[in-house]
Design a protein around this nucleic acid. Structure first.
Lengths: 199, 199, 199, 199
DNA sequence: TATGAATGAGCCTTCATTCAT
DNA sequence: CATGAATGAAGGCTCATTCAT
């Protein structure tokens, strides 16, 4: 729980912490957050029960950490990407590709994220996660609007378009299998085609 | 838990049970299934703690009943609809309209359904619910394929198209508000336009 | 719970009550008093849950009634018997015969009685049952002492002799089977032979 | 519940477990097994409610452990004893002495054992206890038969003799007081005299 | 740093009992 | 008289968390 101060041990601590987060996401995704007891979790993580509390002050903090590990790299990439001066449709394509790649790389995190949406939406300690999500959605909305404008408008309501895209991409976590027919990039491109109606 | 045998009392029992299911869906959607204790639930349902067990043999059975109340009317309507001899694109449009209407009418049920997907996918008592869902998805897949064929094919992978449609429609439960700009039918039509890329 | 006043209905009420007691003894003997719920009991008795409360003010009263149904006829017979002017050894033999007959006829009652001894010994409402038992034991003790005196004493401690006899006879409820090799009277005679060491 | 693996801690765990069993027997004997709630029990045992579950997987397992703690040493002693080449009547006397000593040393265990006979006889998890009891009874039966044969037979049915002995000895738990007139050995000898009718 | 026994609050469920029908 | 739905207290048990080792 107390991050060490010497750089070497701190790096080791961070690495161990990150690993615990990833494994926990896996366990929570299958068994559910609430339905996984801390002893069960500890067993799956190959630490003693109390060991978890070296990295997290409580079970809910671990859940928050899972969401952070999901959102942070995505948000960083996305913000970097929209800062380029590429055409909007190219930005959109790149954004959706990275987004899908993130979903696919953090499939368990996504499933947990969706399961615990009620906590994210209403929980007291979840403001930060809530805002990350909003920030990301606004960013997508913006790129989408610009891409649409470039293409000469659309008969479909822009907000519906955004919701549809969010729905498609997030839903990917529920069916994607690593050895599937389509690569993450192909999936992303398919989504862009649909949402822009091929224009 | 024991459905009465006399028709009159049985009707009353069924009505009360259905009402309890609906209210429970509402509470679970906000607070989460596991994070809602049975006493809390009972209070929201305006029955005594033990009263719940007159209608359900346990908390999990209540959750199953919520999913049944969501799936059954949808599946019945959908099966009736695809049995008509209307053109596939018309069938698709009708199907998505009814589907969206069902999501909108059972918004809380849908949110609960999504939260507890890990139970639905892995739980021992969930086989029936699992099969209803699969049946519905196959039905959508079929209509979609026929509609596509009528329109002369598409550059987008058919399975991706299906997944995208499932993602969009299900995601609707997360943002729909009764007084929003778009009616359920308009939302549905928008989805069909996107998934068929306007053809 | 309220015994009727008209003689005819009262007789019917008494008969029904007695039958309920006997059946309850049977159920309690197999499943245990505490481990038999009132709904379970009601089902075995073929009445509705609430029906039991027409004859007994509560579950524990029913248990007391079982003990009364066991003790009352035994005590009545025993008191009548020791009032005769037969020789003590004959009285002893008759007493043990009736006692064993009572155990055999109320086998379930006896098993329940033994299971719930801690209640009988310590329970607040059990004074009457406690005293019946004591009265009976003193009666046996008295006959036994007189029989012993007639026989010219014994090398075995008289109280031990009493305890042994109580132990043997009560234990009979645990192994007696109606179609066994020995009749209740033969069993009783065997006990008397042992306790008097054949004198 | 999970016995430790290191010898030192295992010894401590075993000792604590044994102590808990003994104390639980005491509480159950007075208040009854079912009528003692786990919080009540925990208080008497001076552990927290949940602490009990470190040593037993459930309340019923604790009850089984009480019966094991009663039967195991008795059975071990008895088997050792009958393996000697002493005359049968001497073996019988020694056996009953040890048996009575065991009853007296485990008086509470015996009372619990008798209260919960319906569980022992019918319970699913009780097979082992059931078989221990049967094994002991057969052992007594055997010694008794041989002792009888040495003495030249008896007019009393051998099985009745066995039942009577079982009844006497077990019943001892219900009246024995440590400061009583008779020592356990004297009690045992009295029982042997009665059952052999002084021969 | 890591452990896992111990805690006691809280969980789901069942209970004996009541009372409108 | 009889019913069985409803009550809410209490049941056994599991939980997230702590802390002596």
């Amino acid at each position: 729980m107390a991050r060490p101060e010497t750089p070497t041990t701190r790096a080791r601590w961070d690495a161990r912490r990150a690993e615990v987060i990833g494994r926990a996401a896996h366990v929570f995704a299958r068994r559910g957050y609430d339905q996984t007891s801390v002893p069960e979790l500890a067993e799956a993580l190959e630490v003693a029960t109390g060991g978890i509390y070296h990295y997290f002050s409580g079970k809910e903090q671990l859940l928050i950490a899972i969401c952070d590990q999901l959102m942070e790299p995505l948000l960083a990439e996305a913000e970097e990407l929209v800062a380029t001066d590429a055409p909007a449709r190219e930005q959109l394509r790149d954004l959706v590709r990275r987004w899908v790649a993130n979903v696919v790389d953090h499939q368990d995190h996504m499933l947990v994220f969706q399961q615990e949406r009620h906590l994210i939406d209403h929980g007291a300690q979840w403001r930060e996660v809530r805002e990350s999500r909003k920030r990301f959605e606004r960013l997508v909305q913006d790129v989408l609007a610009r891409a649409q404008a470039e293409g000469g408008g659309t008969p479909v309501d822009p907000r519906l378009q955004l919701s549809a895209l969010l729905g498609m991409v997030n839903h990917t976590a529920q069916w994607y299998r690593p050895r599937g027919r389509l690569s993450p990039a192909e999936i992303a491109d398919g989504y862009v085609d649909l949402v822009l109606m091929g224009r």
